[in-house]
């Protein structure tokens, strides 16, 4: 027994890659099919039986931004360039704000626990866990009274608050993992508390900051219900615009929708690949680390 060469436990070879590859491919197929559909002409999209081989065209991608509503007439702007801008601007600003405010708070919760620290953390997590539909009614009323509905300020403030619980929990989990020795050494050398934070702690959690920012961006980028009820024509984001494309009366142009989705997908797939290490922590809002 001992002299026979045994494979190490938990390791597998190319055979397993083939097997896993087939299953992964099947699992990924719905996404793949949408990407393929985006490159099809309108006739190919609706063909029965479905076409696996076709001449790719960029027609759909062009008509995301400019298209003629009546055949033969001049193309009109669809406003999707504005919606893409809105999505990027709103998500970017609110995540940046949440990151600054949330990282400070996370550091506070991690290093200077308040009385009832756990209760604060629990309440903060609860605000993230509760169904958005619960908060939306009072927020809707509040925004109407304050004249904030349909403005960038309103939706950015709301999304900042929406990102905060996630940011605080994530960043706290990263701060908690740091070894306190280095900080104490810094303090003994006479570093001020501010210096300890900026020069010792923050550089060590750089990867965590990046992961938190990117997860926040995706969560905000994907958010639908708040955007549906609180953005106006000028501040509409992509998910809302997409849902409205489906809800159109003249029949859905699936090729067009697939093109929008494909544009929407690219950043997400890149992120999933780059952030695999932090994915577990990210999707559980920092409550599970390993």
């Amino acid at each position: 027994m001992a002299w026979r060469k045994r494979r190490e436990i938990g390791k597998a070879g190319w055979g397993w890659t083939g097997f896993a590859g087939i299953i992964s491919f099947i699992y990924f197929f719905p996404v793949l099919w949408i990407i393929l559909t985006a490159f099809k002409s309108n006739a190919d999209v609706l063909s029965v039986p479905p076409k696996f081989l076709f001449t790719p065209t960029l027609e759909n991608f062009v008509s995301v931004f400019r298209r003629s509503y009546i055949p033969g007439q001049a193309a009109v702007d669809t406003g999707f360039d504005l919606f893409f801008f809105n999505s990027i601007y709103i998500a970017g600003t609110s995540v940046a704000l949440a990151l600054v405010i949330g990282t400070l708070a996370a550091y506070g919760f991690s290093r200077y626990p308040l009385r009832g620290n756990d209760t604060y953390m629990f309440i903060i997590l609860t605000t993230r866990m509760l169904p958005p539909i619960i908060v939306i009614i009072p927020i809707f009323l509040m925004f109407r009274l304050a004249g904030l509905s349909g403005t960038y300020t309103g939706i950015i403030a709301l999304y900042t608050a929406f990102n905060l619980p996630f940011t605080i929990w994530m960043m706290k989990s990263f701060f908690d993992e740091l070894a306190p020795d280095i900080e104490d050494a810094g303090r003994l050398d006479g570093s001020s508390e501010r210096r300890v934070f900026f020069k010792i702690c923050l550089p060590q959690v750089r990867a965590g900051l990046a992961a938190t920012a990117v997860f926040g961006l995706i969560l905000t980028w994907n958010e639908f219900l708040f955007a549906l009820l609180l953005t106006g024509i000028d501040t509409r984001t992509i998910p809302v615009a997409m849902a409205q494309t489906i809800g159109g009366d003249i029949g859905v142009r699936w090729g067009l929708l697939a093109a929008i989705e494909t544009l929407f997908l690219i950043p997400v797939i890149v992120v999933v690949f780059a952030l695999q290490k932090h994915l577990l922590r990210g999707v559980t809002f920092g409550t599970i680390k390993r």
């Binding site: 890659t17 992964s24 994907n222 998910p239 997409m242 489906i246 989705e261 997400v268």
Partner: peptide, 20 residues
């Protein structure tokens, strides 16, 4: 690489999945 394929659905937006 294969993990990326399997993990992608989770990070999509509900709207995209609904539309798919």
């Amino acid at each position: 690489v294969l993990l990326m394929l399997v993990l992608t659905p989770m990070m999509l937006s509900f709207v995209a999945v609904g539309a798919f």
